[in-house]
Structure formats: C-alpha cells, structure tokens
Nucleic acid binder design. Sequence first.
DNA 1: TCCTTCTATGCAACTCGTTGCATAGACAAG
DNA 2: CTTGTCTATGCAACGAGTTGCATAGAAGGA
Lengths: 188, 188
Amino acid sequence: MALEHAILVSLLEKPGSGYELARRFERSIGYFWTATHQQIYRVLKRMESDGLLEVREVAQQGRPDKKEYSVAGPGRAALSRWLHEPVEPESIRHELAVKIRGAAFDDPAGLVSEVERHRKAHADRLAHYLSGERRDFTGPEAPLPLDAGRELQHAVLRGGIAYERMTIAWLDDVLATLHRLGTARPGI
Amino acid sequence: MALEHAILVSLLEKPGSGYELARRFERSIGYFWTATHQQIYRVLKRMESDGLLEVREVAQQGRPDKKEYSVAGPGRAALSRWLHEPVEPESIRHELAVKIRGAAFDDPAGLVSEVERHRKAHADRLAHYLSGERRDFTGPEAPLPLDAGRELQHAVLRGGIAYERMTIAWLDDVLATLHRLGTARPGI
DNA sequence: TCCTTCTATGCAACTCGTTGCATAGACAAG
DNA sequence: CTTGTCTATGCAACGAGTTGCATAGAAGGA
C-alpha cells in the first residue's frame, strides 16, 4: 500500500487533483515511486471513502472542473502510524540485467545498442535531476528558506542523482565487457 | 513477463526444479529479480504447457521426487526474440524515500533508527555479494575459465555491488541530514 | 516421542499494477 | 473545419505479485 502513503505525502506537501498527482508522479515523486493515472484515481476514490482524504470540487476557467484532494485527520494519522513501523529494504528489479546474463546464450554484441539506449535514458534523467536540483536547492535562484521538508526533499533527490551516476558508470562497465567479449575472444 | 525470461536464463545456465529456482531467486538471480516459490511454480506450469520448457521426473533418495525443468527449442527462441526487442529503462520504487519525505510532517528524528536498519541490511548484502565475487570470480579459488557467460554474470554482480555501495553512501548522507535537522535547528 | 527444519509441490483468495478504451470541453495549428 | 494536444476523469479486463494455507516424507535434536 505504499502508493497510499506516497499520495498522502504528496498531498501534504500540496493538495491537488488526481490529474495533478499523476503529473507529479512523472516528476518529483516519480523519482522513487511510479503510478499511472488510472491507479491514482482508483486509490484516491478508495482513500476518500475510507475518510483519509477530503475532496473539494473546484470550477476552473478554460479547463474542466477538477476535484482537489487534501489530507484529512485520519489520513495524517495513518501516515504517522506507517512512518513508525518498519518497511522492508527494497529489492531491485532490473530487466536489463536479465538480458545481460541471457546474452551469453545468444549474441552478446547484439546487446550493445540496447545498453547504449539505456545509458542515454539514464544520462537524460541525471541531467533532468541536476537541473531540478539547481532550480530548487543549490542554484542562485533557489527559493529560501530551506526548512526541514525541503532539506529532506533534497536528500531524496541526491539519492536519485547518486543512483543515476552509479547506473551510468555500471553501464559503461557493461559496454566495456561486451566490447572485450566481442573483439578479444570472438566465438567463445 | 520478465519473470518468464529470468526463468529461461536461469534454466539455460542450469536445469532445475521449481524449488531450486526459488532458492536461486534468493541468491544470484535475486540480485536483480525476485520471485516467490508460488509465482515460480505457477509460471513454470504455464511455460511447460506453452511448450517453452520440458519436464523430467527425477526420483531422489532421502528426498521427495522433483520435476526437473529444462529449456526447449521454442523457449530458447522466445528468449532470443525478447533479447532483440527493447525493454523500458527500469524505474525505482523506494518506500524508504517516501518515508524520508513524509518525515517532514511527523518526527524526522524518529526515522534515524529505521534508516540505520536499512543501512545495515544493505551493508550485509554488500558483504554477501563481495564474498560471492571472491568465491566465483576474483579469488584464488575461483574456477576457470572465465567464458562469456561467467564474464557477464560478473558484470551483473558488479552492478549489484555498485548499487549497494551507492545506497550505503546515500543512507549516510540521509543520516547526516537527519542529524543536522535534529540538532542545529530543533523545532523547525 | 514430539517438535522443528528441510526438501518439494501446490491451491485459493486477494491486492497491486498495466493496458486499452471512452468521454468531453478548450485551444492552437493547418 | 478538422485534426491534434492538453486538461480532467473514469471503466473494464487482464496480468503480476503477495499472503495464507495445505500436504508429505526424511532428518535431527530435546
């Protein structure tokens, strides 16, 4: 049920509609948790009927009406309860790693373009994170003050940046390995 | 359907039963893909009825009989097809990161023990990976030769090692941030 | 002897997550 | 004037993954 908690955190940071939440899950929250709009709408409805959230119909000009959700008392309590119980250390699920091991039974050299594609995607994500970091935290235009919430957001973003840097370095390592297998000892 | 492909790779590396696969998913394959035994048994059955795998009943002494699965021709073809089509770069799902951002609305200092617990889990996993690396790849007792399959397995393991090191460093960063928030500016 | 652990397989029920599709008003480009 | 994009919400069906439970023989310890 981590999606519920991610939604509670996001709505505490700023109330918003399902649509707005979906967009946040493509950006900041999406650094460490993903969700599609269908999932979000479904869970929002359930959370509201469970009394964790409050809705407010908001009429807009030039746009469809929206339902703005905010966290109700029981929602805050549920988040607090969850924060005080342990969660399992996450385990990774990395399809590309499956492919890399599988390449031994096919054509290792054929994997190069796929690995390069992933490397580019991670480099793009890193650039995106870094520009976000400058904009929100370290740049001269970054808003002040840095309260606890923003400090913690920054710490999480630093984790995303470290993850992308590590992944890029690893993919370079993988590319070097594939290159070595393709040239030094062909046919093995 | 990445579980299917992970199973194909694992069975190509070495045929085995559902039980044995479940154990591998706790170790080497589990470095980058996880699955429970129920999931594995269900998928094995489906893959066999789809003709991707072959079964062989094996009687054992002092143990229950087992069904040893191995990859059939169509299974190898399915893996090859998958290797040649692109997969999406993975996105992380990190509950602890949700907690860290959520802590701003509760008690940041209360999170310290949880982060320390995660740090220890990652340090244990790193130690486990490193001893596996010495045993299988870099140590004086490591078996030879290092063919393409083992080179690629090693590359994936290096990815796991890099991931754990990065995560430990990040959690230290988070702990320092929590400490800073708890002492320098209490109450903010 | 009983209790636990290990090997080995599986069902049933449930929740979580994805994919495809549908609706509908506003706005911009061609 | 049609096509496409953006905001905004949602249903239905399916597939992936989790949790709890059940069975059963063999081995080992209290």
